[in-house]
Design a protein around this nucleic acid. Structure first.
Length: 363
DNA sequence: TACTCGTGGCA
DNA sequence: TTGCCAAGAGT
């Protein structure tokens, strides 16, 4: 070993064990207070609450999750309560939070846990449950059960890529980042360590303009020593998003609008929705209304999904032919906010309500 | 491996 | 306005 010949010598390369004490000391003083989190050093919270928060937080900001977490805990205080809930209630409660497969897996997982009587208390056992991948299984094992587990989310990837100056672009860098994270993860307080890494990434080691002056790991950080820590981790270029065009249909009768429930898999699966013309990420819709009648445009909403943008034209029908009505659920227009529509259809529904008010004024 | 799958905030 | 991004999982 010839440390003196390294271009950028750093203590962590030879002594990764120095990281955890630095980080945990910082966490004891600076941990964010979050509704689903115990204070540093306190007993672990209810596994149900840890699991619920972790699933909601997948690819989702703390700010967006907070209100949903409170609502779910109020409606379903225990995993047995959630397991007993009707599918439609859970999907409607999740509406607006996105990535609806999470809600479908949440319910499947709750029912499996209720059947077993408790959450598995090992990373391997947790990993086998629906909706728990490598990250969430490790996080719940560490935070709720005090297991040593290697917890790697986007925050940890950023902190570790900078700490070790890992130049390989994501996602190819993931194996190296995981090995590095393993090397700095302590046996004791693994849950606090994981949450500390995520807090550090969220508040100090940020994507843009990291606040290195406040970082407890500054003395050990190779990217900081090299300068320009914000350039790491490098990322592979992204594909361009196509623009798709589609229609949704506002079919109203006696103050109620016709809603459908989308198929269980795929985009917005299991969610209440307006009838549409079959638009998808791959293709435009066919534009054909689901029933005969006089149609007029109620306006266009633009909505961005992860992998495509949608221009959705809302079509209004004032006089639907009762003989050709498709199957569905008649929902009072005045209570459309309670239908649990995903955001793209909630936007369209606002146009539908506006169109109804406009027509009513003309009469 | 690479793609699919939401949403809102921010610069 | 546009692009980037967040406590990823499933296929």
């Amino acid at each position: 070993m010839q440390a003196s010949t390294q271009a950028h010598p750093s203590p962590i390369l030879d002594a990764p064990e120095v990281v955890a004490p630095l980080l945990l000391g910082w966490y004891d003083a600076h941990a964010r207070r979050l509704p689903w989190r115990a204070l540093p050093g306190d007993p672990a919270p209810d596994p149900y609450r840890v699991w619920l928060s972790e699933v909601m937080l997948q690819q989702t900001t703390v700010a967006a999750v907070t209100a949903y977490y409170a609502k779910f805990l109020s409606l379903w205080p225990r995993v047995e309560d959630l397991a007993a809930a009707p599918d439609a209630d859970v999907m409607a409660a999740w509406a607006g939070l996105g990535y609806y497969a999470r809600a479908r897996n949440l319910l499947a997982c709750a029912r499996e846990v209720a059947r077993r009587g408790a959450f598995p208390d090992t990373e391997e056992g947790l990993r086998a449950l629906p909706g728990l991948g490598a990250y969430t299984a490790a996080a719940v094992a560490a935070i709720a059960f005090g297991r040593r587990a290697v917890v790697v989310d986007a925050n940890v990837e950023r902190v570790v890529a900078r700490l070790f100056a890992i130049e390989t672009p994501l996602p190819a860098a993931r194996p190296a980042i995981r090995r590095a994270t393993d090397a700095i993860t302590p046996a004791a307080r693994a849950g606090d360590f994981a949450q500390a890494m995520m807090d550090l990434g969220a508040t100090v080691c940020t994507v843009r303009a990291p606040r290195c002056q406040l970082c407890p790991l500054r003395s050990a950080c190779r990217a900081q020593a090299q300068g320009e820590p914000e350039r790491l981790p490098a990322k592979a270029p992204k594909k361009a998003k196509p623009v798709r065009r589609g229609r949704a249909f506002w079919i109203e009768r006696d103050g109620a609008v016709l809603l459908v429930t989308r198929a269980g898999k795929g985009m917005l699966g299991g969610m209440r929705a307006l009838p549409d013309d079959g638009w998808s990420a791959r293709a435009d819709g066919h534009a054909t209304p689901p029933l005969a009648g006089e149609w007029r445009s109620g306006g266009v909403v633009r909505h961005g999904f992860t992998h495509f943008d949608l221009e959705l034209q809302l079509m209004l029908c004032d006089s639907p032919d009762p003989a050709t009505l498709p199957a569905g659920e008649w929902w009072p227009v005045d209570a459309i906010e309670q239908a649990g529509l995903p955001t793209v259809f909630a936007k369209a529904a606002r146009l539908g309500v506006a169109g109804k008010q406009e027509r009513d004024r003309e009469r």
